[in-house]
Write a protein that binds this DNA or RNA. Structure first.
Lengths: 224, 224
DNA sequence: CGGTAAGTGGATGACACCGTCCGTTCGACG
DNA sequence: CGTCGAACGGACGGTGTCATCCACTTACCG
């Protein structure tokens, strides 16, 4: 690659036919990009990933066109907005696998994921899409499944979890927990903790211990 | 009131200013009304109460206007569509209170409600709105709360449920269970059963028993 | 400081759903 | 069987979201 004067990346004319992404943005563009992402996180967290794009743009103090240029499709925006958080999840995953106490590792991981699901209305769909099997055309997803299976097996074999605990119960817990999304933050967190704890309690081999306090959640009044 | 020839109900002119409901419908009208309600149940079950009205009309083989005349607002349609099912719930409620074994009564009741929630995407919001407290301007709702409290208290005092089981946990279970809606029918049912059983298991005072089989549910791929 | 292309925001057309209006159909009664 | 009005259904205007286009602005480099 010939030495570039540090700016103007991929600037020479005949780079690649479909070459459209200037890799380095103008200062204001980069600033706006960040504002959009932050706005997206806020709006998606509050209203879910189906929230109107214009709402994100408005919140970011930016025109719709600006947003669409940077993120041509809703999926692109959603993906970018949750990229960091998904990486955090992957890290938490590694931590769980590294924990010498398999039961605790699994529990801590689920605690994090469930809490995020409860607090952020948009998170669950993205997370499910990223880390969950089923069709699993994506190797990463298959790998995640693999690792969950490993965690579950270890916890079971260590005698901390009942033999009839199934890997599918993880999915069940996650899906159930995703129903908590949209509650006021504190309540959602408390509910999430209580749900996870009781679910685990059921599969515990040891004597039952105390549970986190109950959460007095107000059922979602759907405006039908 | 002058004698009416048996048809033409409320037909005399100056009945009440806003008098609009002819109490007895023409044969075809009544038939269409039923078809609309059935279609509504099907569509709402599959797509939720937010489904387009036109979809209901199409499925019923009826024009939109027909539907709107009979059910001027979405709420009216939803309410009418779920009226029977809500009555069933009320009945199940009574059964639960009548059961000499308080634990079993509560469990059976929740089993029914959770199953319905899992199978019918539109049911949860309606049910929550009908039977759940919070603002409770509605006396019936307050009463329902009252009765749930009674059930819970009895089950706790009979020693079947742990002391730290809270009435709010019922709501938690229902909200969590509502997250299962939209899955394929069989899977949703299995998941619902498993979730309920493990949740209860956690609060059981007796030794842990067997659980219903795990449900291999496929996480909802939201089309964002 | 000036030129230029990247960047911007608002206007715009396409689309889906809502809820009403109106000309037509057909059930009920005489 | 004829009449009348209840009931019907498709068409239509209104609204909100999506995604694109275009004329203006401005950051960056020489």
């Amino acid at each position: 690659m010939p030495d570039q004067p540090s700016h103007k990346p991929s600037g020479h004319v005949g780079d690649v036919p479909g070459d459209e992404a200037p890799a380095v943005l103008r200062a204001d563009a980069r600033r706006n990009r960040e504002r959009v992402l932050e706005a997206a996180r806020e709006v998606f967290a509050a209203q879910g990933v189906d929230a109107p794009i214009s709402a994100v743009a408005r919140r970011a103090g930016v025109g719709v066109a600006t947003l669409y240029r940077r993120f041509p499709t809703r999926t692109a925006l959603v993906t970018a907005a949750y990229a960091e958080q998904l990486d955090l999840c992957a890290a938490a995953f590694d931590e769980a696998l590294a924990d010498p106490d398999p039961g605790r590792g699994l529990y801590t991981l689920l605690e994090k994921v469930c809490a995020t699901q409860a607090v952020d209305r948009g998170f669950a769909p993205v997370f499910m899409d990223r880390f969950t099997d089923s069709l699993a055309h994506d190797p990463e997803r298959a790998c995640a499944e693999e690792r969950v299976a490993h965690l579950v097996r270890r916890a079971r074999e260590s005698g901390q979890l009942r033999a009839d605990f199934d890997q599918a119960d993880i999915t069940l817990l996650l899906v159930a927990s995703s129903g908590l999304a949209g509650q006021p933050r504190d309540i959602a967190l408390a509910a999430s903790r209580r749900l996870l704890a009781s679910f685990f309690q059921a599969f515990q081999t040891q004597l039952p211990g105390p549970l986190p306090p109950p959460a007095r959640l107000e059922p979602p009044r759907r405006p039908y």
